[in-house]
């Protein structure tokens, strides 16, 4: 790389170089500081924290806070740790992401390749759902869920997230498919493929990048949701709500090390998704939005 930069037009002196890198390192440190504090403090006994050494490395390294947070900590009235709530979150997120993505893809396919009278209006209405604040729909949503008999359950929460997610996923897929010529669908029609066959055999296989975008977007949004979880989950609360219950408990000693471990546990899945698929994210986002 170094010999490449020397040939480029912009030449920078050593002083400038040091300044630039210094600034970058400073900002990186600034952004990494909270994570550092969390990790360090989750690995030391509570006594070390209360004695006032927040920034120091642990004197005694221990995984006990993590074990506590995962399986023993008092959440609400039960000493279950975050484990069962983590499972709840998985049970909510996986079907919600899957359903909203597949419905979004189907919507995008119809809105670009099987256009009908009023399709832009339908698309506009779907887009509108992206801009409705969550708080406004809480009460109507509760009524609907109650009438459907799925209030206070995981299927109910999945439905809420699917409904809210479709607007975004439809937007992604519609813009992505708009780039592909309609002739593709016509050729397949002449070849004898029907509506669903064209979707499965031709449209979905070319949707890789935008599917990554849709999955990451939906996964992080649904995983991090607190409001719907707190409102509609009943006993089967997701991770975010449980974490809140853990951290906000007003009785006993505040176990900061356990809280830090719990917070990291709650953030871990989204972090993992970004690390695995992140580089496709920007690429897919560009493909979906700019060309459309």
């Amino acid at each position: 790389m170094s010999n490449v930069t020397q040939d480029t037009a912009v030449r920078t002196s050593t002083v400038t170089r040091i300044f630039i890198y210094g600034l970058l390192i400073l900002f990186a440190a600034y952004y990494l500081m909270p994570l550092f504090v969390m990790i360090v403090n989750s690995l030391k006994p509570l006594s070390e924290i209360t004695s006032g050494n927040m920034m120091a490395l642990p004197e005694v390294w221990t995984l006990e806070p993590w074990r506590q947070a995962w399986s023993k900590a008092q959440i609400g009235i039960e000493p279950t740790g975050l484990k069962p709530y983590f499972l709840n979150s998985i049970l909510i997120v996986v079907p919600a992401v899957f359903i909203s993505t597949i419905v979004g893809a189907m919507n995008g396919y119809v809105l670009t390749k099987w256009r009908f009278r009023g399709d832009t209006l339908v698309f506009g209405a779907l887009l509108f759902s992206c801009f409705i604040p969550f708080q406004i729909v809480l009460i109507p949503m509760a009524v609907v869920l109650g009438k459907m008999g799925i209030a206070g359950s995981i299927p109910g929460l999945v439905l809420v997230h699917v409904v809210y997610g479709i607007g975004f996923t439809t937007l992604y897929y519609r813009n992505y498919y708009a780039v592909f010529p309609t002739e593709l669908v016509r050729a397949a029609q002449i070849d004898g493929a029907g509506f669903f066959r064209i979707f499965w055999r031709i449209m979905l296989p070319i949707s890789g990048p935008i599917t990554v975008v849709s999955v990451i977007w939906q996964f992080t949004n649904i995983w991090n949701d607190f409001l719907f979880g707190a409102s509609f989950a009943g006993q089967q609360q997701p991770m975010t709500v449980a974490l809140n219950n853990l951290v906000q408990s007003s009785t006993g000693v505040k176990e900061y090390n356990v809280h830090f471990a719990g917070a990291i546990l709650a953030a871990l899945p989204t972090l993992l998704v970004y690390i695995v698929a992140g580089r496709y994210f920007v690429r897919g986002l560009m493909a979906g939005s700019v060309k459309g």
């Binding site: 010529p181 002739e183 593709l184 016509r186 050729a187 002449i190 031709i202």
Partner: peptide
Amino acid sequence: MVFQSYALYPN
């Protein structure tokens, strides 16, 4: 039919 954009299935 042969199309202007060829319309070959990219996948």
